[in-house]
């Protein structure tokens, strides 16, 4: 059985600024990282591999430099890394992206038995959480989102039971394989690569699939296949704070004022 982990290279959003004039992301000098949720997807795939002896393929759609992300996956121990990269995939929204990734996974299904696809619950750049469910829909796989624990996994009986982390509650659901799950950070603690694995990863060939491999209709991919349009990006304006009281001369008074303010906003209940 093959477990597929979908990973994405994203800009380190804590370092992203928005150009106030052009309203676009200032990408210059911003380092790229592996999407934090995807690290947990990768880890879970590797854990299943360690336990059940299946194979793990990491797959990523992105520009050629997304290779770095796949190298990291290789250093953590995936058996195969596939970069889905083509100019015509560029500018894709979540719909077009799931079209491409679903097709790539379909190619893997033709090759071997894909039992499980694991995605992070969302990316930290787009934050839509739509691509995982989009892939599942297009592949016809059961989709189990927001997984924080795998309760049961049986590759023989082809069944998976997971706990979903919802707002204020958990939900335990079961599905037949093949399935797609999206995972939250609480699911596991990612591993750290050994140096031999890192050195190995530097030399391992990364498979690159272009649209001539996937043969998708150009109207369903890239900018053409993306119905979403971005009108404007902006940083929300933060109201300037004001200094209340005089902490230097009258700390007691300032503290009282602070407590009052917090109470009035229901931030402090005494």
């Amino acid at each position: 059985m093959l477990v597929v982990a979908c990973i994405k290279q994203v800009p380190d959003t804590t370092q992203v600024k928005i150009d106030p004039v052009t309203n676009t992301l200032v990408r210059e000098g911003v380092p790229f990282i592996i999407n934090p949720f995807d690290i947990h997807a990768l880890e879970e795939a590797l854990r299943i591999r360690d336990r059940f002896g299946c194979r793990v393929t990491a797959i990523s759609m992105g520009p050629p430099n997304a290779e770095a992300t796949l190298r990291k996956a290789l250093s953590l121990g995936v058996d195969e890394a596939i970069l889905v990269s083509d100019r015509c995939f560029g500018g894709a929204d979540t719909l077009a992206t799931s079209n491409v990734l679903a097709e790539a996974i379909r190619r893997l299904v033709k090759r071997e038995d894909v039992g499980l696809v694991i995605c992070g619950k969302q990316t930290i750049d787009g934050d839509t959480a739509q691509v995982g469910p989009g892939i599942a829909t297009r592949l016809g796989f059961a989709q189990l989102t927001l997984v924080d624990r795998i309760e049961h996994f049986d590759p023989e009986k082809r069944v998976i039971r997971v706990r979903r982390k919802l707002e204020g509650r958990h939900e335990i659901v079961e599905a037949p394989l093949p399935a797609l799950i999206t995972v939250v950070r609480e699911l596991n603690r990612p591993r750290y690569p050994t140096v031999p694995m890192r050195l190995q990863a530097l030399e391992t060939q990364i498979t690159v699939w272009r649209n001539q491999n996937l043969e998708l209709d150009e109207n369903t991919i890239g900018l053409k296949g993306s119905p979403t349009c971005v009108n404007r990006i902006f940083s929300p304006q933060r109201e300037k704070g004001e200094i209340l009281g005089d902490g230097g001369k009258d700390p007691d008074g300032a503290a009282r004022l602070l407590v009052e303010k917090l109470r009035s906003k229901d931030l402090l209940v005494v």
Partner: peptide, 14 residues
């Protein structure tokens, strides 16, 4: 480097 065995609080630090 070989065993990846260290106090768990170091993972994030690394």
């Amino acid at each position: 480097e070989m065993q990846v065995r260290f106090p768990e609080e170091l993972l994030g630090v690394f």
